[in-house]
């Protein structure tokens, strides 16, 4: 176990080093440097630009820049934002984290809860009319651009029906002394539309994984044996078959864990949700490289961590992995 764990962790660390190098190279490959635009926008003197260059370390040789970038990243220092100068990127990211955690967590819970339930239902009723229509409906949602679905839902539920708020996370007119319950209710009302949008476009993948995995298990001999022993069908399905059909879904969960923190760039942008996604979108608009780079590094670290956690879960759930 420890040897496997050490090797697997080491592999993730090596990949992260590659990620850091790739991101740095990408940033440097791009024509011009971030300050060029800033200088063009704000009529700065050559001396002021040179001073800024020095401040951001862009006047250093590329190797020095790289080592200080890596050293900073390892210490959790992602540099200073250009747009929100002199706020640190790490401070910005931390301030946006709670909103993204709330949205991402809700979406993961909804997507996997509903997706697993529907996938199991489809596998049990395979090739029925309901199965086919569920596949069609989920694929149609999957094909929609999330920002567009968000806009359409915002238009219908927010503007036509005046049912739900369509922007931000809090009602700015809410009495700041309102009770805890009222404030939570307010956040939840703001959460509904972005969460529903993201869940709708991602549901298809979970449904399909669960359906396929369960169908594969249901045709195995041990399921037949369980049925032959007279075990009730409900128990065969959930206790015997479903347990074994959970692995691919766990893998998918690991893959999607990053969503918890990074949320969705597009949906957060549409609903002005104050999370990391809209931070990244705004940074793109402002050409704020340190922030784009910082969020990209953070999301990549989560991708690797998610993969690692999924492998750990496999290891815990499936004795066969342990022997391999």
């Amino acid at each position: 176990m420890t040897r496997w764990l050490v090797r697997r962790t080491l592999q993730a660390v090596v990949t992260f080093v590659v990620v850091t190098v790739l991101l740095f190279v990408l940033m440097r490959l791009t024509p011009g440097d971030p300050l060029e635009r800033l200088a063009g926008d704000r009529q700065m003197s050559a001396e002021a630009v040179a001073a800024l260059r020095h401040k951001f370390g862009i006047d250093q040789p590329i190797t020095t820049q790289f080592t200080s970038f890596v050293a900073g990243a390892l210490a959790g220092d992602l540099g200073v934002s250009i747009e929100h100068y002199p706020t640190k990127v790490s401070t910005l990211v931390l301030s946006r984290l709670p909103a993204s955690l709330l949205l991402g967590g809700t979406v993961l819970l909804l997507t996997f809860g509903i997706g697993i339930a529907l996938g199991v239902f489809q596998a049990v009723k395979r090739r029925s009319r309901a199965d086919r229509w569920l596949t069609r409906a989920s694929l149609t949602l999957y094909a929609m651009p999330s920002f567009w679905l968000g806009l359409v839902l915002a238009w219908f539920f927010g503007i036509r029906l005046q049912l739900l708020p369509v922007a931000q996370m809090h009602d700015p007119l809410l009495d700041p002394d309102a009770s805890w319950l009222v404030r939570t209710g307010d956040v939840l009302r703001h959460l509904i539309l972005p969460a529903v949008t993201l869940t709708a476009v991602s549901l298809a993948a979970v449904m399909r994984y669960q359906r396929t995995a369960l169908l594969e298990v249901l045709r195995l001999d041990f399921v037949l044996a369980a049925r032959a022993r007279g075990i009730p069908e409900r128990q065969v399905l959930w206790r015997h078959a479903w347990r074994n059909a959970l692995f691919p879904v766990v893998g998918l969960l690991g893959l999607w864990l990053p969503m918890l923190v990074s949320g969705s760039v597009f949906v957060e942008q549409v609903f002005n949700w104050p999370g990391l996604g809209s931070l990244a979108a705004d940074a793109v608009g402002a050409r704020d490289y340190p922030v784009i780079l910082g969020t990209a590094m953070l999301v990549s670290a989560q991708v690797l961590l998610g993969g690692l956690l999924a492998d750990l879960a496999y290891y815990a759930l499936d004795p066969r992995v342990r022997q391999a």
């Binding site: 990949t15 590659v18 790739l22 791009t30 011009g32 490289y289």
Partner: peptide, 24 residues
Amino acid sequence: MRMVDGALAIPRLFLLLLLVAVWE
């Protein structure tokens, strides 16, 4: 393949944001 591993760990959208944002 190590390079591909690294590239696959960066969500494609973020790669694109980095690559595309520079162009005026």
